[in-house]
Design a protein around this nucleic acid. Sequence first.
DNA 1: ATCGGACTGGACTGCTGAGTCCAGGCTTGT
DNA 2: ACAAGCCTGGACTCAGCAGTCCAGTCCGAT
Lengths: 200, 200
Amino acid sequence: MTRALTAKGAATRQRIVAGAAELVRTRGADQVGLDDIRAATATSKSQLFHYFPDGRAELLRAVAAHEAGEVLNDQQPFLDELGPAGTWQAWRDVVVQKYQEQGIHCPLSALTTQLGPADPGIRMIVADLLETWHTRIADGIRRAQGEGLAEPSLEAEKTASSILAAIQGGVVMMQATGNIEFLKVPLDAAIADVEPVAGV
Amino acid sequence: MTRALTAKGAATRQRIVAGAAELVRTRGADQVGLDDIRAATATSKSQLFHYFPDGRAELLRAVAAHEAGEVLNDQQPFLDELGPAGTWQAWRDVVVQKYQEQGIHCPLSALTTQLGPADPGIRMIVADLLETWHTRIADGIRRAQGEGLAEPSLEAEKTASSILAAIQGGVVMMQATGNIEFLKVPLDAAIADVEPVAGV
DNA sequence: ATCGGACTGGACTGCTGAGTCCAGGCTTGT
DNA sequence: ACAAGCCTGGACTCAGCAGTCCAGTCCGAT
């Protein structure tokens, strides 16, 4: 599958993906053409097709995979440390802050709804991301139960679904309304079962 | 704003919007061209521009407004009856069933993330829809409190946000993974505060 | 009946943007 | 040194699609 790539070639490829990802994030996938990517990454048409023989579609899949990785990276190390008291709030703060910074520009939604329907490959990338994300949260819930923080009767998988849905839904609503409260409130409510907040 | 329109003209316009909405829902907005709409609605290019002088953008805004109305209509009469025991489950079932039928094809997400970023007019339509939806749910929560079903201490607005976010997030996850459980579980959890379920 | 304006058909224009091609530059192993 | 082949530049092709134009037809009011 992967071809012989020199260090220089790999760097160029990486530069293309990162540049394209940036554009897709800020403008939306359908507002980004190959010429935009070419200009933004100081490359030429032939380079794009050299590294992505299937053209635009393959490049966007690479962008999707890149962004999916970033979503989880942005939550580290907090995501993997979920469990003990205080870790949920710390993680929540990172997530909220991240999306507040991004504002309208969500790497995931840009890809899921814009290209997902048309490209099964991208749907799979997003599905994998959600599954991984879900698993990490569920692991955190089980650790919280081990610490006696959360009710042992709580079903980790289901609670993780609720928390993750609160984030996804909150982001959707925030994007449409511009109001970050639509992310904060549902997320706080969702994690209340594993880490009750004292104040407000 | 609105021009003189005969009954016939209004019918044609309506046919165009409905037909275009159908296409956008099933294929995604960027996969629908004016020629597709023309073919599907048995109209001509000049008619499209006769009824939507600003072209594709104006037509898609009309589609967005149409779909936004449908989203709420599909939940009626259950949405407006929220409050008493049993009404939450009935409403939940309608919502779940609706999205299960639609599967991948969500009228809202198709428009929000595909066109919303580029078109402020559409963002506003979606924001209005969410606000109305939110208000209706909050009204239901207050009625539930009046009936003694829900804790009086519950903040209606915040709880409504959680419920709505559970739906939006659940739909996003369902679209990506194909698993309807990602909608059911968070939604059930979110409405547990206003209508605890006996079983399960 | 007839006149104005709403309504319709379909050909035409022009642009944008994906994908192609080939000639030439640069690296790397021998 | 010197190939082999990875890498790069940029002009070119070609299809698809939004938007234009005009020559009509139909309807409703006077």
